[in-house]
């Protein structure tokens, strides 16, 4: 499959398959996903809950073992690394979660929470740790002197997310996976955090995988967007192009569903009723076919492969819109 983002991508996922087994049944969470992320790029990953976005992120970080496939980070296959080499590599890759409050230990002080990755990485000098913690806390807009001694419950959701971002940056990573970092936040705080992520990306030279279920949010920060449905990729392409001319019917549905703050744009009422089927028994052929207005016989018998539909834009559909 040709999904070239750049000649020398920082992250390359090849034919990744991740499954869970629950009560004797197999959940096909991620099925044969391939992706590339260029150095300095933000790739947005969008799709409805349960489509496998978090599982993909966790498998990339080796927090969840893949059934098959490769995760090449800077040329090294993380799926085959073990012990110290894996730990070393992991330091260069960090994760930010959706629920900022739940992901902070309620009994630990902010200074210790942010310093924890340093301790784990073996930074022994307390002065050095303190200096690095102060640096990242200031970078995310918090006053180290004021916040270091406090506990998480003293902070709002937006501030907790700043703390999580600081913790993820303290080891100076190259690649950060942001898993729904703003989904739990209000409109105004969401904008602050999105801007902060952009600033941090520029300041620390980061490469980002930005996961969200809201396409408008993803578009605001991503160079390219990958759309996922029920464990498979539907479409990958440059953000603006994907918005202007979606090729996959599911991408079009996601765009259609965004609420537009303009009373003259009456809601179309054309979003088809229905929800994603179970990943335990995904539909044969194209997994989107049970909700797709263009589905025909071929769609139920043949799995559509990702193929080039326009410059830099790939879609997995037998009857693409472009």
């Amino acid at each position: 499959m040709m999904l070239q983002a750049a000649p020398n991508p920082l992250m390359k996922v090849e034919n990744l398959v991740v499954e869970y087994s629950v009560g004797g049944k197999t959940i096909h969470a991620v099925s044969d996903v391939s992706l590339e992320i260029a150095r300095g790029e933000t790739l947005g990953l969008v799709g409805e809950s349960g489509c496998g976005k978090s599982t993909l992120g966790r498998a990339v970080l080796q927090l969840r073992q893949a059934v098959s496939g490769k995760v090449l980070f800077d040329g090294h296959d993380l799926t085959t690394l073990k012990g110290e080499p894996l730990r070393k590599m992991r330091r260069r890759v960090q994760l930010i979660f959706q629920d900022p409050i739940a992901s902070l230990n309620p009994r630990r002080r902010i200074g210790d929470i942010v310093a924890e990755p340093l301790v784990i990485a073996g930074v022994k000098d307390p002065e050095e740790r303190k200096r690095r913690v102060s640096e990242v806390l200031s970078a995310v807009g918090l006053d180290p002197a004021l916040v270091s001694g406090r506990l998480p419950h003293e902070f709002s959701g937006g501030q907790c997310q700043r703390i999580c971002i600081a913790r993820s940056l303290v080891l100076n990573p190259e690649f950060v996976i942001c898993d729904e970092p703003v989904s739990a936040l209000d409109v105004s705080i969401r904008a602050q955090i999105l801007n902060l992520l952009e600033e941090m990306k520029a300041r620390y030279g980061l490469t980002l995988l930005f996961i969200a279920h809201d396409l408008a949010v993803v578009k605001a920060v991503s160079d390219r967007v990958a759309v996922m449905y029920l464990g498979r990729l539907c479409e990958v392409g440059p953000s603006e192009q994907l918005f202007a001319r979606p090729a996959h019917p599911y991408t079009a549905l996601l765009i259609e569903a965004i609420p537009v703050p303009d009373p003259d744009v009456r809601p179309t009422q054309s979003v088809p009723v229905g929800e994603p089927p179970s990943p335990i028994a995904p539909p044969s052929g194209c997994r989107f076919r049970t909700r797709c207005p263009r589905a025909d016989a071929r769609c139920s018998s043949e799995v559509p492969e990702l193929r080039l539909v326009a410059s830099g834009q790939f879609a997995a559909c037998h009857h693409p819109l472009v």
Partner: peptide
């Protein structure tokens, strides 16, 4: 006005800073 401005716009290019409402 600020609440409206803070919503991500579909017609602006990616990486355009959002007019966030500062503070809480």
């Amino acid at each position: 006005e600020a609440l409206l401005a803070a919503l991500p716009k579909l017609d602006v290019p990616p990486h355009t800073p959002l007019p966030a409402i500062s503070g809480r």
